[in-house]
Simulated scan of single mutants.
Amino acid sequence: MLSIFRKEVSSYFNSLVAYITVGIFLAVTGLFLWIFPDTSIFEYGFSSLETLFSIVPYLFMFLIPAITMRSLAEEKKEGTFETLATSPVTDWQIVAGKYLGSVVIVLLALIPTFIYYYTVYELGAVKGNVDTGAVIGSYIGLFLIGSSFSAIGIFASSITKNQIIAFALSVFLCFIAFAGFGAVSKILSFQSIEGTLAGLGIEEHYEAISRGVLDTRDLFYFLSFIAFFLVCTKTVLGGRTW
């Protein structure tokens, strides 16, 4: 598994895909946080990173599929997956190595945004006037969202040889998982089960963690979500022997 993990990470950084996607991610977050007047901290007038934490999940819907779309689809297209599958590794090791590789890229994309917190911390009218607990909770929530979207992306990449199809399917599934259930729950005919439907989506659990309170139910939700898509990916890979 470690060899697959190292190969996955090195392959990202040996191509322009990782640099371009992470660069665009940081540029867009910077523009929303400091430049665009409707979302700029300077226009908002408060020492808050609310804009960052509200926009990043939607950027992740495109960033992470762009990272994961090639993980298994490219292996299948180039015919190297057969070599990988016949090597002395299990399907679970393949899935885990690919998945952890993409999660590391997501983490590396998040780390540079810590400078935003430091800047807001220093520039406030009262130095340090930032809700640090909420910031920590929000970063944990973003990491869990990134991990969940990575699981979706690996699954989408496992069911096709075409990277574009894998990207489009992953974007769609990420959107449905994050905002789709909440949107459907607001339909008039579903008001009786609004809370249940909303609870199936990532957004509600992310908002709960972003308040700085780590509830075991929210953590269990994310872990179960990730496990579900990894099991689906393993099932797809195992289908070659059926």
Rank of each mutant, 00 (worst) to 15 (best):
L2S: 01
S3C: 00
V9E: 01
V9R: 01
S11E: 07
F13E: 07
N14Q: 14
N14P: 03
S15H: 11
L16V: 12
A18D: 11
A18N: 09
G23Q: 11
I24H: 06
V28M: 11
G30A: 10
P37Q: 01
T39Y: 04
E43H: 07
G45R: 02
G45Q: 02
F46L: 08
F46C: 03
S47K: 00
I55Y: 12
V56F: 07
V56L: 10
Y58M: 14
L63C: 11
L63D: 11
L63N: 08
I64W: 03
I64E: 05
A73I: 09
A73D: 06
E78I: 05
E78W: 03
G79N: 05
T80F: 00
A85P: 02
A85E: 05
S87P: 08
P88D: 05
Q93V: 03
Q93D: 05
L100M: 06
G101T: 03
S102A: 15
S102V: 13
V103R: 04
L107E: 06
P112C: 03
F114Y: 13
Y116T: 00
Y121C: 01
Y121G: 02
L123I: 06
L123E: 04
G124Q: 01
A125W: 04
A125C: 02
G128E: 01
I136F: 14
S138V: 13
S138Y: 14
I140R: 07
F143A: 12
F143W: 06
I145Q: 09
G146S: 15
S148N: 10
S150G: 06
S150A: 12
G153F: 02
F155Q: 09
S157Q: 07
Q163N: 00
Q163D: 00
A168Q: 07
V171E: 03
V171F: 14
L173M: 15
F175Y: 12
F175M: 04
A179S: 15
G182Q: 09
G182R: 08
S189V: 10
F190E: 03
F190D: 06
G199H: 04
G199D: 10
L200A: 13
E204C: 04
E207L: 15
G212N: 10
T216K: 12
R217H: 13
D218L: 12
D218I: 11
L219W: 07
F225N: 04
F225P: 12
I226C: 01
F228I: 04
T233W: 01
W242A: 11
